[in-house]
């Protein structure tokens, strides 16, 4: 299991477009993917779940990956967060 904290850096936050991209990326991997915010955990492969977090700029989230390809999944998704979902 891999767990990492990330901060939302882009201005518009984790809105619909990034949320749907996160789901798209996560779905490529077998590993389970959870996003945790303030103790509330959602399935990162569900766009509705991701939207429910309503994470704005500055929010700190915990990403949890669990499964055979967890390393690859973690690498790509964390990168996507760090790049501000390509909106910086």
């Amino acid at each position: 299991m891999i767990e990492r904290n990330v901060t939302i850096v882009n201005k518009a936050g984790m809105h619909t477009r990034p949320a749907s991209n996160i789901v798209k990326i996560a779905s490529k991997y077998k590993a389970d993917f959870y996003i945790i915010k303030n103790g509330y955990s959602i399935n990162g492969k569900s766009i509705i779940g991701v939207m429910t977090l309503a994470a704005e700029q500055g929010s700190v989230l915990t990403l949890r990956f669990e499964g055979e390809d967890e390393e690859k999944a973690a690498k790509e998704i964390i990168k996507f967060f760090e790049e501000g979902f390509g909106e910086l």
Partner: peptide, 25 residues
């Protein structure tokens, strides 16, 4: 009910842009 959970979360966001997504939902 399930969509309501999502709407509540989105509406309570501090970010205006995210709050506006409630229309799409």
């Amino acid at each position: 009910e399930e969509i309501q959970i999502l709407e509540n979360a989105v509406v309570s966001s501090n970010d205006e842009y995210i709050r506006e997504r409630v229309n799409d939902i």
